[in-house]
Write a protein that binds this DNA or RNA. Sequence first.
RNA 1: GGGCGUAUAGCUCAGCUGGCUAGAGCGCUACGUUGACAUCGUAGAGGUCACAGGUUCAAGUCCUGUUACGCCCACCA
Length: 889
Amino acid sequence: MSNNEMPKAYEPGAVENKWYPKWEASGCFHGKVNPDKPAYSIVIPPPNVTGILHLGHVLNNTLQDILIRWKKMQGYEVCWYPGTDHAGIATESKVEKTLREAGKPGRDELGREKFIETVWNWKKECGGTIIRQLRKLGTACDWERERFTMDAGLSDAVRKVFVELYNKGYIYRGQRMINWCPVAQTALSDEEVIHKDVSGKFYHYKYPLSDGTGHLVIATTRPETMLGDSAVAVHPGDERYKSLIGKTIDLPLTGRKIPIIADQHADPEKGTGCVKITPAHDPNDFEVGKRHNLEFITVMNNDATMNAKAGAEFEGMDRFACRKKVIELLDELDLMVKIEEITHNVGFSERADVPIETMISAQWFVNMQELAKPAIAAVRDGKINFHPARWSKTYFHWMENIQDWCISRQIWWGHRIPAWYNDATDEIFVGLEVPEGDNWRQEEDVLDTWFSSWLWPFSVQGWPEKTEELKYFYPTSDLVTGPDIIFFWVARMIMAGYEFMDELPFKNVYFTSIIRDAQGRKLSKSLGNSPDPLDVIDTYGADALRFSIIYIAPVGMDIRYSNEKCELGRNFANKLWNACRFRQMHGSVTAGFRNLDSIDHAKLTADEKWIISWMDETIIMINKALDDFKFHLAAHEIYEMVWSSFCDWFIEASKVRLYGDEASKQQTLVVLDFILFKILRLLHPFMPFITEELAHQMGFLTEGESIMNEAYPKPLKDKEIPSIMNPEPNIIDLVEAKFQLIRAGRALRAQYEIPPGKKINYHLKTVDTETEQFMQGEVAGIKLMLNAAEVTISTAEFMHEDGPAPAQIVNAGTIYLPLAGLINIDDELKKLKKQQNQIFGWMKGSQAKLSNEKFLSKAPEKVINEAREHLNELEMKLKRVEESIATLK
RNA sequence: GGGCGUAUAGCUCAGCUGGCUAGAGCGCUACGUUGACAUCGUAGAGGUCACAGGUUCAAGUCCUGUUACGCCCACCA
């Protein structure tokens, strides 16, 4: 439609900024309950409200966007619920840091209420950056339905769930050994502890027996905890120490006497066979302590400094300083035996990246045993499918060994636990409302962030209200997330879905690859190897980033990313742009662009049939690939189709008709339009901006329309094919033989170093008359693509008047480059001999196979026939090579 | 200690349930600005599919073992 000259290169910036607001304003991202259509829904893995967009988000959200746009174009009513997570610990420490840097009063000075207010203000001002950034990427999120895990409705859901699980007896409060982060000063779940191998020291030292008859040698990596020792254990069957059981030792540095006990936990093979027992600071020792009714001596404060129980000498010292001090003192007492260098496994706090302490503390837990059962079955029975499927193994392993979930956190930002204590009566009340009466004080702790995220698939849809949305869009269809949160989030959502909705939360889970830098390192801010996606979008364009990252993403492995790889997507966008630009230079859009109805199908040329048929294949492959969550495969298919089949071959071949008579030109324009509009729609989920822009530029769509409302291409129906593909069944082969011939002709030119611009003559000796006839009909195009002055075609033996000519043997026949005096006989012979040998080799293999009775009896019919046919072809080809050799001699 | 994954061209990776001469992108070499595109075109070089066995008419593909790297899980002092 537009007569405006399109710029030579695609400029993404303006196009992206133009379309996103239009899409958003037009409401095409909004999913409504629509009984006339099947529903398709996705919930976004809610990024931290503190988060900023990184490449992991780009991959993850591009995939979701592809699914959403694809399904929408397929005719589903789609809804993509976006939102953010309040991320308790992360946000609290972020805001605290901000306050500290600004020199403002911090958390403790402000007090609970003021601090929470401050965080809300911060959230309002600075939070949700990532949500704005996602728009830059082009994501078709239903922004009208944006949610935050601490919204009123979602908070109601959290409270209801807590109360229900408490009433069922799944949630309980108890004194247990928990993981403690000394920096965040809160309990953590097992999943928030990262085990790392670190080098450390293994200290061996003596504990003197109280009766003065000698000593035991114990070994530990944590000498500072000896201040909390309440026993030494030996194995009951260990003959070496049998006589000592029941005796006591004088615990150095403390003045305490502690017993020598017999317990299975002591491994006679390990160290000296004697193990110090610190029940308040080690999970194993905790169990031993319970079995033997030992004293639980907590020697550390919440910030991992030593407390008064550790002894006046150590009080207030940091745990590591204390360790050093203890070693010095033991050394002075001449108790040290040896210090070994070892590598051992230490638990670190996920957030603060410091070693955690295991401590005894009163916390809230969820017993997950019952919840896990239907969730395990759902994946086992294939109601929920993981892609790639192997992740289900990880899932089963964790679920089948599931531990109680520590859900209380000693921070302020989050959902405060709906439990109240009555100090007068020692009662605990758990409920949705504040209990009546006096003396009730609410639990100070808040819930683990994941205690709200695990409800996300239904809480965003209004649960516990029975909303229309829930009825229509729940269960959601697909979930796209990283395998790193399979325990944190995926598994728990499945459990919550069954427990509270009595239904699975999603049908498919696609686990994305993890993005690394070019050297394979994890992307991280501290390494400075984490490119800002917005910069990448500025440089290359959002479509280019999206397409590149999908194109390079390996199947179930990590992605090696570097910005330069976005050139692939940028170049591809530019290629597409220029293909459209080319089309537009030949006039405005034709009437048949949707269905080819404006032209007589019987008159379609071979090339046109070829491209239409290729288009159909591509459509089938892409829909199949997306059905199977093989995004990269889909990207490769369409890239290949556009660049190679369409641009390199079809457009080039079409030029002869575009510059020919008017009828030919018009027909080819229709086909170009037909294919281009399909390409744009096919590509739209991957590259939303440029495809929308081009669909309008080309006049396929008018003002107010959007490509996202167009149907996703389907393969031509069987009944349509005869009218379009009619009549020759081998037409595709002939067209491909033509292209092979053109390649061979160009290769000859290159081999003889004839400049591409120089017009030359070719001769084609075809294998048969059918091919001859076909190629005769195509001669104009062949000439054009070979930049030839003349191409003669016949089945007759060819001999140039000046003698033999250089040639190439192809499926259609032999193509000659008859330039007088040009031929280098030796080179030609060498070339032909090489080819002859090659064919001999292949034939030998082929004949061996076909004379192998076992092959003939066991291989399937189809394979055998193909092998025979193949051998035939080889024989024919060999004959032609030999003929060529003969003419040269 | 257990589990999972990966090993294919200089680099990054495809190669589905085994079946013609193993492919793509980038990079490299040569030529080239023909009226879509130098973010381009044409032609080309480049691979004993980690190693060793085995199954099979047939193995990059399946099995076993080995090596290397990566990840996850596990309370071991």
